[in-house]
Design a protein around this nucleic acid. Structure first.
Lengths: 230, 230, 230, 230
DNA sequence: GATGAATGAGGGTTCATTCAT
DNA sequence: CATGAATGAACCCTCATTCAT
């Protein structure tokens, strides 16, 4: 059994802390009480937007299309969001926030290298299951966004943090004699990373395999290979 | 050593045969000499376009940007190509043509399952090395193009053919006791496929590792796993 | 000393009589008490609106901006006013009403030509002092409003009435030998008119000079010139 | 007679030198030979735009309206200009360039204070005659543009330079005993400045009076007053 | 082969206004 | 009285594409 702590919602933002919470519409004085009422609508709209972004690509998605899907007019979206870009921003940063919450839970558990890898991969597949659209969008757009728009600098930050976390784990494992030492670890890192996340391109929630089951099989291949061991 | 036949340039179009050859400009008065003269320019322009498509995404790329990069005005591109879309089309189909030429060479060699997998993966990395931009474009745009534009139906065809080829090989290997039988083969197929092609997202030609070396390490991980075998 | 009667608030609308008084909210259930209660709020809102219109221009001013400044939401303004345009209308017509009240007081005093000019100019500067925003708005927007929107026809009426009043006074003065006769009187009229009103573009209430002091210096220049008389 | 040197087109930009010349369309490589061909069209379009801006105000003018007036579609304007704002920029800076060329000619002539004032006023009326639309636009929009858009900072620069030039001349005149010393010179400066430029609001080229004739009468009023000197 | 100028469709966004609560 | 949410029209601008020269 792979012990993965339930996604403990510590405060571990993927985005640098201090960013605006991005919750309330741009009212002069937003209503007291946390705005729990309109938050539902916001989340709903973001989910719709994420779906369209994931299906058509961010650039190819028109704001009118999102509005159509939401049963409103294009202009009405601007009551809830500043821009198309800010929708994308919220989708991606919400995803990264959750992802990192999960990862930190794993790291806090103090597991051995192999168990850490298993837990991280499992957590990743869970995140793919929960944030499929966001993951797909991330895969397609992150590189370009991170490199050309300061606003999305946190994507590059997250990337770097991600690499440190994984490389560190692999190095620990290699040093401990758990992982092979004849591999280029950077290559191995990319191998595992891509292996996991690209799954978002074909994974459909509610399908044949649960995220955990997929994680188990992926881990089995990654850790032990696809050939028969004599 | 993994024996992979040199990419034999048989006529094996990724696109269904019968498609227009897409070589000569559409002008009534095409340049004398059978288009051999301007072919260099065409290829040059396509390479430029592929570079921009790969870097910015197809939708985000403007025809003017391509023209700028080529030192001409946007309108001038239309002497060489029917449309932006047809540039994309040529880039992708040229890539698939070459890819399939390589794969058919492998299959014609009649190797065993494991050796076939090795040869296919190596051929794939060679293609990534030679057609990096096209591969990147393919990764990003293929799904959407295939599903929404009849013109790009050949992408879906190729995808299906690709799956048959790989699944067949894996099944042969499983039946022969070379590959593990406790895995969902479809999952394994996706695992290997993605693992290989996503490499295009970070691979840079002329870097530290040759395509063959990368292929060797990837195969080592895929086939034998990353953990130490006792 | 220039004798100018205190702005006697006679009922002398700049707008043609018969126009709606524009006081009470348009609601069926208007607040009890005859609207006296909310009149303060109305006036307050109009002052705010006038300030923003003057600072940014009518077109460039958004209703939201006014509402922000008033600490309410844009839609809430529509409880008090029919439209953005009607705010402008009220601001301008209130200003013109007061202005004409002052002018009529002057004319009723039956002064000589020179004294009339002095009194009119002084009254004008007083109005600039009291209705600075309205004057600035008037300067910037009146011509266009008057010529393109029937609703603002009273602006053109006022303009004509204004010209008659001034030209008449100048003609009386020329006939009486007080004013020079070698000038194009229409030119002189425009000269004086512009000279006075443009002051609104730099005048700030509560500054170094009182309106009366400014009027005195302006009159001195207009009547006697800036060169030294031998 | 007031001796005013013909507007000598020295290189005296109202805008800080080093600004882009703003002439050629945004071609990769603009045609050699100075682009004299398309410059005509640019100038034509700018004149049209200036006319509409002057008549309706910048904010109230739609790009479509300008295009209509030019017999083209709105989008086509963007082949010639970067934006609506850049049209405004070119109109205003071209006007200021010419104005300052004229002023420098006057100052270079080394006239006495009174003659300098006469020459400056005459030059101003000439500029109003030649650039009526630009002057009208300037009057209406300059303050706001200068204070809120860095791009139009040169408007504020010009304003300051203008004030120095005029105030200096007035001070010289006062010191020389030509102008009255009992006036607030800053007030006198504004008086003359406004008096002249607001004329743009009613002046129509080709009308009854030539710019020089209007200048003469204005100067007569400003310098000597409208009352009869005994 | 390439340019210069234009088209026309559409895209993101703004904004005055409405109205149920 | 005021809010929250939405409307719908219009706006500036972009861009693939065309075509006479």
């Amino acid at each position: 059994m792979i012990p993965v702590p339930k996604t403990t919602p510590k405060t571990t933002p993927g985005k640098a802390p201090g960013n605006a919470p991005k919750t309330a519409p741009r009212t002069a004085r937003s209503p007291a009480g946390g705005g729990a009422a309109s938050d539902g609508r916001r989340a709903e709209l973001l989910a719709i937007a994420a779906g369209v972004f994931a299906a058509q690509g961010y650039d190819a998605t028109t704001v009118r299309r999102i509005a159509d899907e939401a049963g409103m007019l294009a202009g009405s979206l601007y009551y809830h969001f500043d821009s198309k870009e800010s929708m994308l921003d919220e989708i991606l940063s919400a995803f990264l926030d959750e992802l990192w919450a999960g990862y930190e839970g794993v790291m806090a558990a103090g597991l051995g290298p192999r168990e850490t890898v298993e837990a991280l991969v499992t957590a990743s597949f869970r995140e793919i299951d929960r944030h499929l659209d966001a993951v797909a969008i991330y895969q397609r757009e992150a590189r370009q966004l991170a490199s050309s728009q300061p606003r999305f600098g946190y994507l590059a930050d997250s990337q770097r943090r991600f690499e440190r976390l994984w490389l560190g784990t692999l190095e620990r494992g290699a040093a401990a004699g758990v992982f092979r030492t004849d591999l280029d670890l950077r290559l191995a890192y990319r191998f595992i990373r891509d292996t996991v996340w690209v799954a978002a391109s074909w994974y459909r929630p509610g399908g044949q395999h649960s995220p955990e089951e997929i994680a188990r099989q992926y881990l089995s291949m990654v850790l032990d290979g696809v050939t028969v061991r004599e």
